[in-house]
Simulated scan of single mutants.
Amino acid sequence: MSSTLMATDGLELLASAVLLLDPQGRIVYVNPAAENLLESSCKILIGQKLEELFSNGELLAALFQQALAHQFDDVRQDLILERFGRESLWVDSITTALDHAATPVLIELRENVQQLKLEREERLMDQSQVNKELIRNLAHEIKNPLGGIRGAAQLLELELPERHLKELREYTQVIIKEADRLQTLVDRLLAPHRLAHIVGDVNIHEVCERVRSLIVAEFPVGLTIKRDYDLSIPQFRGDKEQLIQAVLNIAHNAAQALSERIQAGDAELIFQTRVLRQVTLSKVRYRLALDLHIIDNGPGIPVDIQERIFYPLVSGREGGSGLGLTLAQTFVQQHMGVIECESQPGCTDFRVLIPLP
């Protein structure tokens, strides 16, 4: 046992997850990185077999048996490990046969970040397409009867008896005003599908500066806006007004989420631009891409809606329409790009990626 412990001393510091298995395929050691990756403590993991960790654990179990039989020294594979009741893990695995009786096999797992990113982007694209169809159909279903309701209320108002006109007109006006409010909502839902795509040369810093001036005008005190621009970013072909609206929707949401910090006087919003090289967006490889970050130091997005913030009518703010981020994602995707988000208390980072020429 002491030799096993000695062999694991250096494994504690590795960033990749390491599992040591006994001849029966049971885990006898996991390093801290494995505990983090598998979201379980060593006390829970030690003694378990691979089949007990993953619903498709037979994939790793087969590699274990081959290593145990010394069919190879080590073998690498990309695997999707399906966990019970949790999100699947995309990993690069290395199975190594060891010359050690107590722990004859070592398995190393490294999370495949690139594959996770591709899967997330694909999910966003699929979700966006579903959203578009849902919004378009829902908006048209609402729009047609809405006009009839408003027209009927106007006709009813004309037929009201003079002696009760004042008190009854109040009710018909409620109907008309609410119909107008819903009409405005429907128009916003349909806007990205109806407006023409006006293409021209776009300077992303002009877009950011336009948005910055609008935010400063609305929140002149208590909010500091910092700029961290890479001025070497080239112009690209796109719809400037759509991109202004997309960035404004993100920045305005951030400013509203910063309300408490604005009152305290320490609210901060950062516009940061960079160039990324060799980027894959929607399964297409681009030589260059714009990497725009809009970062705030607010309370963060509630965990329960982080995966759904780009869905229509999902809002983390009371009174929010839940359309701003949906429209922003739609506008950016029309430029072959995508918006990603990472959020925790004290830092929310919206990342806009768009291909560059």
Rank of each mutant, 00 (worst) to 15 (best):
D78W: 09
R120W: 06
C341M: 14
I176T: 08
I339R: 04
L45G: 08
L290D: 01
V75N: 13
S88P: 00
I44Y: 07
A67K: 15
L231D: 04
D22I: 14
A34V: 01
H140A: 05
Q173I: 05
V28N: 14
L59A: 12
L258S: 04
I233N: 00
L292Q: 03
S232N: 08
I44C: 01
T8H: 12
R188Y: 08
A179Q: 13
L89V: 06
L81F: 01
Q256H: 07
E307I: 08
A191C: 10
D304A: 09
I176S: 02
I149K: 06
L195S: 15
F271S: 03
N297E: 06
F64A: 03
I295S: 05
N297Q: 08
V303M: 14
V275A: 02
E170W: 07
P161Q: 10
V105A: 11
L323E: 05
E52S: 08
A191V: 11
I94G: 10
S93K: 10
V221T: 14
C42Q: 09
G320D: 15
P302Y: 14
E108P: 01
D180I: 04
L165H: 13
H197E: 08
P234D: 01
E82G: 00
L243V: 04
T273K: 03
L146W: 11
F350A: 04
I175F: 13
A264P: 15
L356A: 00
I244H: 02
S315V: 08
K132H: 07
I135H: 02
L138A: 15
R317G: 07
R274F: 00
L281R: 01
A217W: 12
L106S: 06
R237T: 12
S88W: 00
G298D: 00
Y286I: 02
L190R: 03
Q278L: 07
V199M: 14
F84P: 04
L63A: 07
V174H: 13
R150A: 09
E340F: 03
D126E: 09
A17R: 03
N249T: 10
P220W: 07
L118K: 11
I142D: 06
S93I: 03
V303I: 12
K132T: 05
L258N: 05
S55K: 10
S259Q: 05
R123D: 15
D266Q: 11
L323R: 11
E39A: 08
S3H: 15
R351Y: 02
Q24V: 12
L248W: 14
E340Q: 15
L109I: 11
Q344W: 12
Y286F: 06
L231P: 01
H293K: 05
E157H: 07
N131C: 12
P161F: 08
G298R: 00
R86K: 15
A62Q: 10
V284G: 02
D349L: 12
G57T: 07
E340R: 12
L156D: 08
N203E: 10
